[in-house]
Amino acid sequence: MSVNEELAIQTQGLVKYYGRVQALFGLDLEVRQGEIFGFLGPNGAGKTTTIRCLLDLIRPDGGSVRVLRMDPQKEPVAVRKRVGYLPGELHLEDNQTVAGELHYLVGLRGRSVDWQEVVKIASRLDLDLKTPVKNLSKGNKQKVGVLQALMHHPDLLLLDEPTVGLDPLMQQEVLRMIAEEQARGATIFFSSHNLSEVQETAGRVGIIRKGKIVEVAETEMLIQRAIRRVRIRFKQAVDVEFLCRIPGVKLLSGEGGLNATVQIDGEIDSLIKALAAFSVSDMDIERPSLEEIFLAYYESGRKEAN
């Protein structure tokens, strides 16, 4: 495998089986250093399996993995030293306080963590370190997870659903912290079901379906080039049939020649040029959300399967 210096994560042909069930089908993924990469997919698509392969928690049955230019199977300790990880399902030891749990985790990191930093992040997250772990709500447990992933300011953050269980204000705070880590130079790879959050945060997104990457693109580009609806209002009635002849445009309705609704797949440029020959009083472009795009990929996958 040729190692790209610019990449924080690189997988090629990653294959993973659980018994007879195949979870990853030759997954190829490239995450650039310093970017925020959103990893999207429905439940069971292979998001968590991919993340656990990156940390050598599970061993792939085929393909190769490089994390920060290292092989996690050959140099697991060196990789984990530079990575912060928030598992999708966080389980903490119940028989101690939050401070006790964090002291233990800080001890595992050696001298790379300053306890003052832990206190500072806890304060930002409004987390009481004296609370027994067994008394923590789901949201507060999630705060402990976020804190332990960020406390050593790693080069790479692997976050599996970082804001799940948090209230909207705390979600914003965590996203701010993630953005600060990126500004510091860290790479952030995170999975989420909250697509508006991914849209807001991630520079690029990857969509995984049934153990394979089906799309990787700049978040904006993905939204730009997706199918969108355009409503046009003409000043005078026109024969809207001309719209059908524009490449990538499908006429959905044309009421009395004054209003028309079209669906456009791809660049909008040709439609604008065609409309220049008419007097247009109003035009409304409906941009799809990342959620709609994701659902479109998911739906098309289901149709293929059927």
Partner: peptide, 15 residues
């Protein structure tokens, strides 16, 4: 089985 090993194993400690 309790799920607590997952987090510890993500720290810089060898198996």
């Amino acid at each position: 089985e309790r799920g607590t090993l997952d987090l510890v194993m993500a720290y810089p400690v060898s198996r």
